[in-house]
């Protein structure tokens, strides 16, 4: 293989990884909420952009590190309020009702942001330590010549990885995680056993929102901060969830990666690029209606 081809492939794989990273972060929250609560949360994209706006404000007035700490906490609280104030009334309603109410909420959040900050982007400067590019050729000896990639996007991949590992540890090795996982499988049985599933579910919803918060802080400078971004990012993220299998966390990860790579490798072919995500979704759903790692019988 010629050197330039290796360079091109490496860059495209990394680009695919970082595209997938942001979808993964949003899809994780979506699928976590669906898997535990059975709610399709179409307001998840709006939570993401809410977090971006909050991050711009906090980072603008203080510094970025404080935004990294405060914004996810703020989103956690928003999630709890949202669940207690609205979503819980829709647990027993059909999915279409849930979609309608969360979609409506998304529009309310979007328009409120537009009212407060205007419809155009507001600049979200990177913190000094995240600015600039990384000289990949200095780290990867098989690359030839001069190959660069924005540092911030590599940080995003790292953050995404941390969140995934963190979530995995939380669900796999804590009592809370055990209850939630059991609740995902057999919510009725958990109730019979006297576990207050709903209270934990509120926390799960908060957790999903918190992950959207992390995504908003780190993804904001990349996807830009404007009210419509929430909707724009919701669609591919939702597809990630569908392709991965509704409610499956590892499925969401795999699907995010696949979509990221597909987008990256088809970038130069506009006609294909715009449909590739949907093409993959169609093929996967035809061959395996429950999604790559979906549970049998869920949305099949």
């Amino acid at each position: 293989m010629s050197g330039s081809l290796v360079n091109a492939l490496t860059l495209q794989v990394i680009t695919g990884l970082q595209l997938g990273a942001i979808y993964a972060l949003i899809a994780l929250g979506l699928t976590l909420i669906f898997g535990t609560l059975g709610v399709v949360n179409f307001a998840h994209g709006a939570l993401y952009i809410l977090a971006s706006y909050a991050a711009v404000l906090v980072a603008g007035h203080t510094n970025f590190v404080l935004a990294v700490v405060l914004v996810p906490v703020f989103l956690f609280l928003v999630g709890i309020v949202m669940e207690r104030g609205l979503i819980r009334f829709f647990y027993d309603r059909p999915h279409t009702d849930q979609i309608l109410v969360t979609f409506g909420l998304a529009i309310v959040i979007q328009e409120a942001l537009k009212w407060a900050f205007g419809a155009n982007n507001i600049p979200f400067p990177l913190p000094p330590w995240g600015n600039g590019v990384v000289f990949l050729h200095e780290y990867l000896p098989f690359l030839e010549g001069f190959v660069v990639f924005p540092k911030w996007r590599l940080i995003l991949v790292g953050v995404s990885l941390l969140v995934v590992v963190g979530l995995f540890l939380l669900l796999q090795f804590t009592t809370f995680g055990l209850t939630v996982r059991a609740g995902m499988r057999e919510p009725d049985m958990m109730r019979f056993l006297g576990v207050d599933v709903t209270k934990r579910f509120a926390v799960v919803f908060g957790l999903g929102a918190l992950i959207a918060g992390v995504a908003g802080v780190f993804g904001g400078p990349i996807t830009q901060v404007s009210p419509e971004v929430g909707m724009a990012i919701l669609v591919p993220s939702f597809l990630v969830v569908v392709i991965g299998g509704m409610g499956s966390l590892p499925g969401a990860l795999v699907a995010a990666l696949i979509l990221g790579l597909a987008l990256s490798f088809s970038a130069e072919y506009a006609a294909v690029q715009q449909i590739v995500v949907y093409l993959i979704a169609v093929v996967v759903l035809l061959v395996r209606p429950r999604g790559l790692m979906g549970k049998k019988g869920v949305f099949e």
Binding site: S4, L11, T15, I22, P150, I222, V229, S264, Q273
Partner: peptide, 19 residues
């Protein structure tokens, strides 16, 4: 490269430019 109207992430196109 023709990019879809309203794209939020241009990294995949910018990578092609860098390449």
């Amino acid at each position: 490269i023709m990019t879809p109207l309203g794209s939020t992430d241009y990294s995949q196109f910018l990578t092609a430019v860098l390449n």
